[in-house]
Design a protein around this nucleic acid. Structure first.
Lengths: 175, 175
DNA sequence: CGTATCATGTAAGGGGTTACATGATTCT
DNA sequence: AGAATCATGTAACCCCTTACATGATACG
């Protein structure tokens, strides 16, 4: 149940509405946890019911009302406790790898095209992450606390994208 | 619904029982798709119902009966068609990354311990994959077809593990 | 005699995906 | 006038996880 905790992390950084959270998940948080807005709304409602977050309804002019969530003390406690709980290895699941492994049981050229698309996609994403790194963290050795962790998770995104690019390039070169 | 297709790939390589498949998922296939035996049994039952696989019950001496599955022609067609269908980017989800990002909202030392455990785990796994590579694929340039793809997916496992090790090492060094 | 392995399964619940719905405002 | 954005939600379905169940044989 890590979505709940990912939301608590994000709301600890700054209170937000459901839509704002789903935008954050589309951006920075998105490279290690993805979630659709429906999922986020449902989880927030459940968390409010459970007392982990509190809501303030903000009426806006010319816009629908907005529910702004922030962690309660119970939510902060829950997060702190979860953070200290060891977790097993993350299950790595890749649709694309299944296709790569099975390529010879279908049209290999079609699979190679799909691999090329993914490669381009990873290259685009790597460029975006590297731009973020250059723009937001020009002096990484001076970072501490939450800023340091945000930077290091971005580094993880970069390293993972580089890994994918190396892999897919090797796959295409060998075929 | 990639589990179905991962099973078809594995059964195309060689027919197998549910238990044998779950062993394969624990080994080689496991580094890009994981599944428990319950999930595999249920999916196989559904696939048989849908005509994608056929079953032969093998009676064994001193052991329970075994149901050996293999793809039907319809199953092979389905796999071939799926292989040529483009897929969106794989969602990358990591419980550990959520903890790393949120470390400053809890006990940082506890998070670092968890990261160290995962690092050791990835190092162990990398060593196992590298041993497989050395044992099973001494001459990779001579591989073709399904053997080549099996090798290249193992290479992916190795590259991903190296990425994780680089990331977690960087995280620990910076703290 | 207890534990592990072989082999398959049921049941319950949690999490995630996809499609659809609403209703006002701003932009082209 | 039509499309996009802001903002939240319902409903249905599928997938995955965890716990429990069975019954026989082999091993120490």
């Amino acid at each position: 149940m890590a979505l709940e905790h990912a939301l608590l992390v994000s709301l600890s950084e700054r209170p937000a509405s459901g839509l704002e959270l789903s935008r954050r998940f589309g951006r920075s948080i998105g490279f290690f946890w993805s979630a659709t807005h429906q999922q986020i709304y449902r989880t927030l409602a459940k968390m409010e019911e459970g007392g982990l977050v509190s809501v303030t309804t903000v009426t806006q002019t010319g816009r629908p009302d907005m529910k702004v969530y922030e962690p309660t003390d119970a939510g902060r406690d829950e997060l702190a406790q979860w953070l200290a709980t060891p977790s097993g290895p993350d299950a790595f699941r890749s649709d694309l790898a299944v296709r790569m492994r099975g390529a010879s049981y279908g049209d290999i050229a079609a699979v190679l095209d799909i691999v090329k698309e993914h490669l381009a996609d990873h290259q685009t994403r790597l460029a975006a992450y590297e731009a973020m790194q250059a723009r937001d963290y020009p002096q990484p050795d001076q970072l501490t606390g939450a800023d340091l962790d945000r930077y290091l998770v971005l580094r993880g995104g970069i390293l993972m994208e580089q890994g994918w690019i190396a892999w897919l390039t090797e796959y295409l070169d060998a075929h």
